[in-house]
Write a protein that binds this DNA or RNA. Sequence first.
DNA 1: CTCCAAACGCAAAGAATTTGCGTTAGTCCC
DNA 2: GGGACTAACGCAAATTCTTTGCGTTTGGAG
Lengths: 187, 187
Amino acid sequence: MGDREGPRPGGRSARVQASVHGAARALLARMDRAQVTIPLIAAEAGVTPSTIYRRWGELHELLADVAVERLRPDMAPADTGSGRGDLLAWAEQYAEEMSSDLGRRMIRDVLAAEGGAGPRRCCGYVAEQIGVIARRALARGEAFPETDAVLDRVVAPIVYRILFDEALGPDRVGDLVATAMAEARRR
Amino acid sequence: MGDREGPRPGGRSARVQASVHGAARALLARMDRAQVTIPLIAAEAGVTPSTIYRRWGELHELLADVAVERLRPDMAPADTGSGRGDLLAWAEQYAEEMSSDLGRRMIRDVLAAEGGAGPRRCCGYVAEQIGVIARRALARGEAFPETDAVLDRVVAPIVYRILFDEALGPDRVGDLVATAMAEARRR
DNA sequence: CTCCAAACGCAAAGAATTTGCGTTAGTCCC
DNA sequence: GGGACTAACGCAAATTCTTTGCGTTTGGAG
């Protein structure tokens, strides 16, 4: 049940999904994003367009699917020795990755899809990473803010600025982390 | 120069733009969003599809244009007698409007467009409203946080949750405002 | 008043999307 | 293991959307 949404692991569906995802990533890396179409992806993946249309419906849905996959963290946040250091390192890296052209585009792809599942999953990934940092900090006996507080004070401003204004620099991210950590005492 | 990007006020271009915007709004209100297409909008507006394609390029650009228009505030924030009250009232209304289905969709439309002009303009609208509240507060001799601080502590969490998670209730919005107002003392 | 540039309408060509039908692959139950 | 069943796929035709060339109109400048 915790199995993502996909079909069963070894089936034909899974193979098609993998090859379509791979084709989409390859094309996105190779050419301008406005020129990537479903027939192109289908040709690259070795399937017929109708297969993609039936499964994903629109290009946005497919790209969102691919983007969510790429936004899933592949490792635990670095352990710098303190919760504050961990959060700062994580936040700086996150801000940098997401403000890159690729990161920006992935976020927008995720948001463009119809169902709310993609964005929520991304938020979940972030919350999970913060949770790891938090548990590590608490195990060391340190104070650490609630995950929701970190989302509100650190993650939200980073993402909001990337989407609507201009990406925050490392110094501003540091300020956000400091503000969030100040919240920890009230726990 | 503060004139938006559009053509001169009375020209033919302006009339076409107005009628296309109106047609798009009418169709969005009347039918499901996935069924709204450029040829449909063109028919409703009484122009040929190629006109729309040439001016906006894609449906997303047009919808983003329409959404930005609708997101522009049409009046100054209510004056409740104090900066804190003004901000609270504004934030609660903003959160409510943006978390509605319509608001959500408009935000996503704005973000889906290619150029970064739309999102920045929306952010500018918000900053402007906050600026009005701030100037009123300062004129009364009250303390009030920087606009950037309000964006980070109040607006960003509201929008982030709407886009990625679940909309915040009025109580949580109140907490955000309280946090932001606490910042004012350091000015 | 005349000229000019930008924008529009029309229509044909090209590309993408939808859909019906036959076939295949994997699954479940003997 | 073997047979039936379901979901997904391939193919191809029909539909709809998108692009583009060319002539015409419109509003503004000199």
